[in-house]
């Protein structure tokens, strides 16, 4: 019986689709990761324009106050199991915009991320390796951080 479940986890994790959602400048390196040199489709990743078919939500760097409701709505619309990848310094503590009060300093406190990728912006290789980490979590059956907690559950959006 266990084997069968492993098979599903394996199949799910090897074709991860990400919601094509750009919140900030790290999306530029995400575009490079989709490009011919890094070509993340080799690993089964594909951007999809609708959240209904997406497995991963990528927080691409900074999240402004105006953008946050849209981000949470997108996450809510995604089917389970869903994971969150946070790119760059901004998604952890505001990064270079830490002093700027138009930007939310800790978006991952609101929507917890499963994997953080460091950098400003992170290199495409790092983004791909971050996605690989999510694969490992899915295979091991570890539930996503955002489904376990986070301020987003108490917020209106």
């Amino acid at each position: 019986m266990l084997k069968v479940f492993d098979f599903f986890a394996h199949a799910k994790s090897e074709s991860l689709w990400m919601a094509h959602f750009c919140t900030g400048c790290c999306s530029l390196e995400m575009a490079a990761a989709m490009g011919p040199r890094y070509d993340w489709e080799r690993y089964g990743f594909l951007p999809t324009p609708t959240p209904r078919q997406a497995d991963i939500l990528i927080i691409t760097g900074l999240v402004t106050k105006k953008m946050l409701p849209a981000l949470l709505r997108t996450y809510a619309q995604m089917p389970e199991p869903k994971y969150v990848l946070a790119l760059g310094a901004c998604s952890f503590d505001g990064g270079p915009y830490n002093d700027s009060l138009a930007v939310i300093k800790n978006p991952t406190e609101i929507l917890p991320a499963d994997v953080f990728v460091a950098g400003c912006p992170p290199k495409p290789e790092a983004i791909i390796s971050g996605m690989e980490e999510i694969k490992k979590k899915m295979k091991a059956g570890i539930p996503s951080a955002a489904s376990e907690g986070g301020l987003w559950k108490e917020m209106r959006f």
Binding site: L62, K66, Y97, S100, L101, A102, V103
Partner: peptide, 15 residues
């Protein structure tokens, strides 16, 4: 517009 408003013009005055 303003979805990536970072108030850069204000930010530089703090640095």
């Amino acid at each position: 517009i303003g979805f990536v408003w970072r108030a850069l013009e204000h930010l530089v005055t703090k640095k």
